[in-house]
Amino acid sequence: MGIVKISEHMHENLRIASDALSRSINAQAEHWMRIGMLAELHPGLNHNDISRLLIRAELAGGLDLKQLSELADLSQGFKPHAVAGAKS
């Protein structure tokens, strides 16, 4: 665990969102980081897809970057061992 410094403005946004969604400020920040991480890794997924992916990851034992990437690849039909441009 570490300390992450954020702006006062973002902290206020976190406080408002965490109150509205009945989460701690830290839990809200972690939720937004998960969503953002997956959105950057898989820009083709929408928020609904990402939410389902997070639920599947939790059911599979927790949040792990490698596992999330593999689940996202499977949900998009991506073959991790396929080479771009190679014929199947």
Rank of each mutant, 00 (worst) to 15 (best):
residue 5 K to Q: 14
residue 9 H to C: 11
residue 27 A to E: 14
residue 10 M to G: 04
residue 19 D to P: 00
residue 35 I to H: 01
residue 82 A to Y: 11
residue 26 N to R: 12
residue 10 M to C: 09
residue 35 I to S: 00
residue 57 A to L: 00
residue 78 F to G: 03
residue 25 I to A: 05
residue 15 R to C: 08
residue 20 A to V: 10
residue 36 G to V: 01
residue 31 H to Y: 13
residue 27 A to C: 08
residue 35 I to N: 01
residue 24 S to G: 10
residue 2 G to F: 12
residue 79 K to E: 15
residue 33 M to C: 12
residue 9 H to G: 11
residue 51 S to R: 05
residue 72 A to F: 01
residue 55 I to E: 05
residue 27 A to I: 06
residue 82 A to E: 15
residue 53 L to S: 00
residue 85 G to N: 11
residue 15 R to Q: 12
residue 49 D to I: 00
residue 53 L to H: 01
residue 53 L to N: 00
residue 19 D to M: 11
residue 86 A to D: 08
residue 57 A to C: 01
residue 2 G to D: 15
residue 63 L to M: 12
residue 79 K to Y: 09
residue 72 A to S: 11
residue 78 F to V: 15
residue 28 Q to T: 10
residue 87 K to W: 07
residue 20 A to D: 09
residue 46 N to Y: 06
residue 18 S to T: 08
residue 11 H to Y: 15
residue 8 E to F: 07
residue 86 A to G: 04
residue 6 I to T: 08
residue 11 H to V: 04
residue 66 K to A: 13
residue 88 S to Q: 12
residue 4 V to E: 09
residue 68 L to Q: 05
residue 76 Q to L: 13
residue 51 S to F: 06
residue 47 H to D: 06
residue 64 D to H: 10
residue 54 L to D: 03
residue 34 R to Y: 07
residue 64 D to N: 15
residue 51 S to N: 10
residue 61 G to W: 05
residue 62 G to D: 05
residue 49 D to L: 02
residue 82 A to R: 15
residue 12 E to C: 04
residue 70 E to C: 03
residue 27 A to W: 08
residue 3 I to M: 13
residue 16 I to N: 10
residue 51 S to L: 07
residue 29 A to R: 04
residue 73 D to C: 08
residue 58 E to D: 11
residue 21 L to K: 13
residue 83 V to G: 10
residue 78 F to S: 06
residue 81 H to E: 14
residue 85 G to D: 06
residue 36 G to Y: 01
residue 9 H to F: 14
residue 60 A to L: 02
residue 74 L to R: 14
residue 54 L to N: 02
residue 72 A to P: 02
residue 49 D to W: 01
residue 29 A to P: 00
residue 52 R to C: 03
residue 55 I to G: 02
residue 33 M to S: 13
residue 41 L to E: 06
residue 16 I to S: 09
residue 5 K to T: 15
residue 45 L to C: 06
residue 17 A to D: 07
residue 56 R to H: 09
residue 65 L to S: 10
residue 39 A to L: 07
residue 43 P to Y: 09
residue 58 E to Q: 11
residue 1 M to P: 10
residue 52 R to T: 05
residue 11 H to S: 14
residue 6 I to V: 15
residue 62 G to T: 03
residue 58 E to C: 04
residue 28 Q to Y: 05
residue 38 L to F: 04
residue 10 M to P: 02
residue 53 L to G: 00
residue 56 R to T: 02
residue 54 L to M: 10
residue 11 H to T: 06
residue 85 G to H: 12
residue 68 L to H: 02
residue 86 A to H: 07
residue 78 F to I: 15
residue 50 I to H: 00
residue 60 A to D: 04
residue 26 N to G: 13
residue 86 A to Y: 02
residue 39 A to W: 04
residue 21 L to F: 07
residue 83 V to D: 10
residue 54 L to R: 02
residue 49 D to C: 06
residue 69 S to A: 08
residue 67 Q to K: 15
residue 38 L to S: 02
residue 45 L to G: 01
residue 68 L to V: 06
residue 87 K to Y: 08
residue 55 I to P: 00
